[in-house]
Computed example of a mutant assay.
Amino acid sequence: MKYLAVLVWAILLLQMTNFVLNSLAGGGTLNLIAPIIGAVVFTILVVLFDMVIKSSKHDTNEQH
């Protein structure tokens, strides 16, 4: 569930950033697909980072 929240927030914030940068560039057609792909990649990176942290915490606890 926490990764779903990360995905929703990533999509929301990247779409907002996309809109602002598009407006600063003079408008034109708004690309809706690139921020969604970026949000999915960001979410995958967060999941992988969380797995690495959990495994390192688990390894540290076994050594003590």
Rank of each mutant, 00 (worst) to 15 (best):
F49V: 14
W9T: 12
V46W: 02
I37H: 01
Q63K: 10
H64D: 10
I36W: 01
L48H: 07
S56V: 13
V40Q: 00
H64R: 13
I53L: 14
I11P: 00
A25H: 10
L21E: 06
A34R: 05
L30Q: 12
N31L: 03
K2Y: 09
L48G: 13
A5T: 06
L13M: 13
I37N: 07
V47S: 03
N22S: 14
G28V: 03
K54H: 05
A10F: 00
A5Q: 08
L13T: 08
I44Q: 05
K2M: 07
I11M: 09
D50F: 04
S23M: 11
I37Q: 06
I37K: 08
N61D: 13
Q15E: 14
M16C: 12
L14D: 03
N22V: 02
F49C: 05
L7R: 00
S55N: 14
F42V: 11
I11N: 04
L45N: 11
G27K: 06
N22P: 01
I37A: 11
V6Q: 01
M16E: 07
M1Y: 06
M51E: 13
I36L: 13
H58I: 04
V41T: 10
I44H: 01
A10N: 02
Q63H: 06
I36H: 04
N22A: 12
A5E: 08
N18G: 08
F19W: 15
I11Y: 01
L14C: 03
H64W: 07
A25L: 13
I37P: 00
